[in-house]
Nucleic acid binder design. Structure first.
Lengths: 150, 150
DNA sequence: CGATATTAAATAGCGCGCTATTTAATGGCA
DNA sequence: TGCCATTAAATAGCGCGCTATTTAATATCG
């Protein structure tokens, strides 16, 4: 094994661990911020998709559509969506035209939560103490890596 | 809210999600690679620390020392270490000089696993399809962000 | 010495995220 | 039409990772 390969291997390990532990650190920050909205980070992501796609009565989202956006499947989403439903933020109902699908809609309460949630990104950006350029570069590299990994 | 701030906020969200989803993608790759060692990724990290610190009979590690290295606490590590113990890879024992501490040591089997584990980083690097320079840059940015977050 | 504070690890309980499987509905094709 | 494959979501069960709490041992200080 030459030096270049050796360096690569060690480095790779460090990158994986850096990804793992930075993600945990980020989750910790968001947990604190999202506490006052009574949301977990994955629940917040689902709500972001709902808000972004305007999932009202006229344009409900299926479970798999949400899963496409977040790279998650029904085994993860079904229980999470049930929790959001019992919190009164969304409504779940089998589609009339295809009863295999479950349509997910925002409730009035779910739509209303958006305003309070708009304070979150600013607080998170503040916690990161990073310049926009740095965040942009990091995002680009992460997206590239994710794409290559899958 | 001006354009710069607006961009920052959106970007920040994207970075958090990129971190979250890339971490999941990475975990997926490692799950497949570690399957043949019967280890999960967090278990693999613990074993890496054990190997790296040469945690044999003369230099056992405490639970909190492992936690320092991995940014994890006893609530996460205790059950994980119990699983590694029942897999025969490590031994756990209360320290004689301070019975609050638990000393963790590699077993012969645990030491032996290292050889097979050495194939993992190369396979992971291959799966990432990234150049060393790219991985190095990514690691540096992740480490910087983690440090700023905590 | 004895009461109290501190420390290390363990425990209880919750919410992901996963694999593998199941249930139920729809589509396709002879 | 009837059979079979496919699809969407749900379920079961496991291993983190967390907060909050508990247990037990050690340290500190009057």
């Amino acid at each position: 094994m030459n030096n270049r390969t050796d360096t690569l291997l060690k480095l790779d390990l460090q990158v994986c661990f850096a990804l793992y532990s930075t993600n945990l650190a980020m989750a910790k920050v968001y947990r604190k911020l999202l506490r006052e909205l009574d949301l977990t980070y994955p629940q917040y992501l689902v709500m972001m998709v709902m808000w972004e796609e305007g999932a009202d009565d006229n344009a409900p989202l299926s479970v798999s559509r949400i899963g496409e956006r977040l790279f998650l499947d029904s085994a993860t989403l079904t229980p999470l969506l049930k929790r959001l439903e019992s919190a009164g933020l969304i409504a779940r109902r089998r589609a009339a035209d295809d009863e295999r699908r479950v349509e997910v809609r925002l409730t009035g309460q779910g739509r209303a939560l958006r305003e309070r949630a708009e304070a979150i990104p600013e607080a998170a950006a503040c916690a990161s103490q990073c310049e926009p350029e740095e965040l942009a570069a990091l995002k680009a590299q992460l997206d590239d890596l994710r794409q290559k990994l899958s």
